[in-house]
């Protein structure tokens, strides 16, 4: 049981590829892959990546075409490429305002969502307390009622609280859909963290909350990263609540705002695709931020604390 080789690797950029060190496995007796296996592995991943990327790539290509060129019976990769659509979206519409609103809402939802779901997830993973099962059920049942049917009652509730057309109202609504999911997910991850770590913490005189904060959370970074990204993307791309609750266009989020490019009879696909690309960029950036935490070896995390 070696501890030395992982010390200090956590939390530095570039951990990603070292955290599952090939070397460590190799010492376990597995030789390097054969060339054929390696080829098959890469081929599979390349094909999967292509399928994943193709529609997005097409989105980018379309955004570079003239405003109406998407509507054509002949399929072309490039067609008079320019950044005109981007210029119009950024210059002539309220896009920057929507972007700011979305970032604010998504950031709040992510931070609050991860904190709330981690604490709840930890509590239901570690403690057996009266009401434990009903909380598990409650979190589950919350997911089951179709959102489309919830919009009107939640609207009325927020209206009663004076939260219509207010960012906190939207954030709270998003939390109701992200937290139950994330709390369940976090419980799953916490379940994989050995309970002996908690006991060790207790032996060291930490409170249950201290154990959670100082020992367990660092060990659960992959789960936290998934929860964070899930919360962010949910808030980032949600349409139904945002459309209903944000009644003034100074409060529109991106998902609502770019609906303006879809008229009654005609959609401005050039503008729509350009803004979609612009919307995907921050989401991808957030993923880059969290993804290094996706791969954090268990022992590595433990040694840090």
């Amino acid at each position: 049981m070696s501890t030395s080789d992982t010390v200090g690797t956590v939390g530095t950029a570039g951990t990603v590829d070292r955290a599952i060190p090939g070397g460590r496995r190799a010492t376990g007796g597995r030789g390097p892959r054969s060339a054929g296996a390696s080829l098959a592995l890469h081929a599979t991943l390349v094909v999967a990546s292509l399928v994943a990327v193709f529609p997005v790539a097409w989105l980018v290509l379309t955004s570079l075409k003239p405003r109406d060129a998407w509507q054509s019976t002949t399929v072309r990769l490039f067609d008079d490429p320019s950044l005109a659509n981007y210029a119009q979206v950024l210059g002539d519409t309220a896009f920057p305002r929507w972007l700011f609103n979305s970032l604010l809402v998504a950031a709040l939802t992510t931070v609050l969502g991860v904190v709330l779901s981690a604490t709840t997830g930890y509590a239901v993973s570690r403690f057996r307390f009266p009401g434990f099962r009903s909380i598990m059920w409650m979190l589950l049942v919350t997911q089951m009622f179709p959102v489309a049917i919830l919009i009107v009652p939640i609207y009325n509730l927020l209206a009663g609280l004076g939260l219509i057309n207010q960012f906190p109202g939207l954030v709270i609504a998003y939390l109701t859909s992200t937290v139950p999911f994330c709390a369940w997910m976090m419980k799953g991850y916490f379940d994989t963290v050995p309970v002996e770590i908690d006991e060790a913490g207790r032996v060291d005189g930490l409170t249950p909350f201290g154990t959670f904060w100082r020992l367990i959370l660092p060990l659960s970074r992959p789960g936290l990263a998934v929860a964070a990204f899930y919360s962010f993307i949910t808030a980032w791309a949600e349409v139904a609540y945002a459309t209903a609750f944000m009644t003034g266009d100074d409060k529109y989020t991106l998902a609502v705002g770019i609906g303006q490019f879809v008229g009654q009879h005609k959609a401005e696909w050039g503008l729509l695709t350009a803004s979609s690309v612009l919307i995907a960029v921050p989401a991808a950036a957030v993923f880059l931020l969290v993804q290094r935490h996706l791969v954090t070896g268990l022992t590595a995390g433990a040694t840090k604390s």
Partner: peptide, 18 residues
């Protein structure tokens, strides 16, 4: 947006706010 307007108006109108 036209596609949202009908539902959005009805939701807001019935609540008396927004």
């Amino acid at each position: 947006p036209f596609a949202d307007a009908q539902n959005k108006f009805k939701t807001a109108a019935q609540s008396g706010s927004g």
